[in-house]
Nucleic acid binder design. Sequence first.
DNA 1: ACTACTATTAGGACCTAGTCATAGAAATGC
DNA 2: GCATTTCTATGACTAGGTCCTAATAGTAGT
Lengths: 191, 191
Amino acid sequence: MRCLLFMRKPKHVRKAELKETIQNNPFITDEALATSFNVSIQTIRLDRLELGIPELRERLKDVARQHHDEVKALTDEEVIGEVIDLQLDETAISIMEIREEHVFTRNGIARGHHLFAQANSLAVAIINDDFVVTGRANVRFSKPVKATERVVAKAKVTAHDDKWTTVIVESYVDQRRVFSGEFQMARGHQD
Amino acid sequence: MRCLLFMRKPKHVRKAELKETIQNNPFITDEALATSFNVSIQTIRLDRLELGIPELRERLKDVARQHHDEVKALTDEEVIGEVIDLQLDETAISIMEIREEHVFTRNGIARGHHLFAQANSLAVAIINDDFVVTGRANVRFSKPVKATERVVAKAKVTAHDDKWTTVIVESYVDQRRVFSGEFQMARGHQD
DNA sequence: ACTACTATTAGGACCTAGTCATAGAAATGC
DNA sequence: GCATTTCTATGACTAGGTCCTAATAGTAGT
């Protein structure tokens, strides 16, 4: 009789669940997995082996390393998005891919400040001066952007005096304009 | 003679350097530290003990855990900053602490889009509707903000029709205004 | 010179969360 | 009934530590 009092799941089901469990909680030990799946530790280890899932400590190291490099990049990077063209004091283009973490969970639409961040950081990058900060900005979000879409931001310097530079940024998803803004950038020192 | 061929640093210097070394490379083992400081492993361990620095594995676990919770929070959180007061469709206040990763390395001034993000997300939060996106924004960065400063953003709903809500946000550091903006928020569905 | 003291090093026992390899038991397929 | 898959048990070994005890090196006070 195939009855262990506590019925077991077939191997492939367990393996699938195992993979998922570890994925959204990399901090779990084999021992905890064993009791939670009601099998022995060795079984868990065989499964991990077959699935190519590394041990707890390696997993943690991976998570830590990833974030050590990446976290900063999220906020700290010089330009939000990837610059693919840059003529100082003339034009610049960057691309940003909208991911799940950029959108509202309620409606799947990208939060405005990510589009702003892309445009703003491009406006900073385009200017050929060591000291640049944004003074004013007037922006418009014309179409909602969803996850997985790629936003292409095009910046253009339109005016220039000894202290201020005006940059126009327009962002597109598949040729459709989703964002436009005018940025007044302050150059030179002091506030 | 106090000469060990390779002169050692005094203890307090080593400890200070040790702390720093570990801080910007949590992945280093005691063994590596020992050879790099030219002392024995035990000495390193004593130092760590005195400095209250946990072992490699605990450090990695900490880094991993922090980021597991936090990384997403950086981009994914509903409101950037911490909401400390919220009257729907009336006023709202949030506080955000400017950290190293928010500022330009060149001049130590906060990137504009972080202030924008705080204000924008507060403007979203203040509105009592399931579907809200930013339509337009007109913002002004009046004073530069530096690392470690705490920015208090105050939002106020000033106008309201069936589709649009106007929100004014003003942000302060120690009573001094650093940012102000007018946000036109779209409510209800469709684009 | 002898003593007191701190700093450093060495050693052994133990820990966790694994690895790998081998062997045996249990359930299932046909 | 027997082969085959699947699971469990066992033992030996690893990294990167912990904690404790003990010995040594160098420096300072009297």
